[in-house]
Write a protein that binds this DNA or RNA. Structure first.
Lengths: 232, 232
DNA sequence: AACAATCCTGATAGAATCTTGATGGCGGCA
DNA sequence: TGCCGCCATCAAGATTCTATCAGGATTGTT
């Protein structure tokens, strides 16, 4: 998919508000289609296939909640509802009808833009297709969701403590982690000065993960400071 | 499908707020895990695999924004940020770091619940990707609709508890499930430390489903952590 | 610059502890 | 009576902890 500017559909009747939104969005490189009524909005939603829909609930020709329902009958384009009536039960109803977010007037441009980015992010990776968070460095591969560790395509079995230690190193991959910090994250703050634990377990990790445990390339020592997991 | 109550992770230090949230969620049939600190929260997020995370930004031990970042390094579980500081730039930052929604205190229970439903809807599988009502792995086949289990085309009879256990394993197929999590899903949260139940029932499942129960290939043990059902 | 004392790190191995799987009995219930 | 869930016990195995030793780097002193 070409990374063109995302298309935003604006369903809003008040000209003033519409101009504010249009200007803000254009300034941030979005393409904008506008609709001043519910009817027109539904037509545009079907015809233009926008990536996000901004929907004002207070439209003259149809209840905004009804618009949400209609859009959801045919598409799951992210809908961000905008409304002045903030207190009512509308908020809950809109969300339950399929809206993805709800902004109460007045709101700042930066918040609106951030919420649009969230919506786009959601449609970028449909949940089923979500890429697995997998850490990889050299011939080490760690699947953090499945809790599986591979060294050159061979699964390596780690004990709970070994895995926790590796996970802590991965969280800070590339950076140095002090003994104290590692101990806190793996054993808890009461063990912050038991640095001999680290020596034993780092040795075990190296034996299981390094090609040559005596000459570590992934799990390196930063003398006097701590350890580091190579990244990339 | 016996839809089990979704698991919500609560990262919130103020006891009062935590109680409000816990009560609200429990009353609406969510399972709740609580963490009173960022450190604990990160551990729970990794360990318990919640379906939604409620994160208070004002934690004592770590900046909430940092917590968001850390969670996103390993998972894309929906995060709903809760915060008192509504005006700042935090809102935008949190959303851009990967949070999915942002609630400013004070907020109503109904709105919170609606936003949680949105988050769950997002992580639900999109239409085309709907999870197969039939699970299959090796010579094991489970028809989740008819509630029938086959091993190499022979139907196997499972007791209710055995089936619930197997269903829980299937829901997380491929991943490790901790003892605690399994116990909660099958027996309820009051039994979270009765891990001997698991040993008995896992043994029974293995006898009924494995070709060689002493050398399990489908229902494997992750020592010190939990169990895993092989997938594919 | 040389030396020694000290600290840091890695290796190893045994003991203590925890975890797991196997088995069988008990009671409730249809 | 037969099935099922619950509970207790035991042995084997795995894991964690602890202690000890040696090589190397660093520091401080002369």
């Amino acid at each position: 998919m070409a990374a063109t500017a995302p298309l935003v559909l604006l369903i809003e009747d008040e000209p003033q508000m519409r101009r504010f939104l249009r200007t803000t969005l254009r300034a941030h490189d979005y393409q904008v289609v506008e609709a001043a009524s519910a009817r027109e909005g539904l037509a545009q939603a079907a015809g233009r296939n926008p990536e996000v829909i901004l929907l004002d609930l207070g439209l003259p020709d149809m209840d905004g909640l009804e618009v949400t329902r209609e859009i959801r009958r045919v598409a799951r384009t992210p809908i961000i509802v905008i409304s002045a009536r903030g207190q009512g039960h509308d908020k809950v109803t809109a969300l339950d009808l399929g809206a993805d977010d709800y902004l109460t007037k007045p709101f700042g441009a930066s918040e609106l833009l951030a919420r649009i980015r969230v919506a786009l992010r959601h449609s970028a990776f449909p949940p089923g297709t979500a890429p697995q968070p997998v850490f990889q460095a050299g011939e080490l591969r760690v699947d953090l969701v499945r809790r599986q560790v591979f060294r050159a395509d061979e699964e390596a079995h780690l004990t709970p403590t070994e895995y926790k230690l590796l996970a802590a190193l991965i969280r800070h991959a590339g950076r140095v982690i002090t003994h104290r910090q590692l101990l806190q994250e793996v054993w808890g703050s009461n063990y912050a000065d038991q640095s001999h634990y680290l020596r034993v377990y780092m040795a075990q990790l190296r034996h299981k993960l390094e090609r040559d445990p005596t000459r570590p390339r992934l799990l390196t020592t930063e003398p006097g400071v701590g350890y580091r997991l190579r990244e990339g």
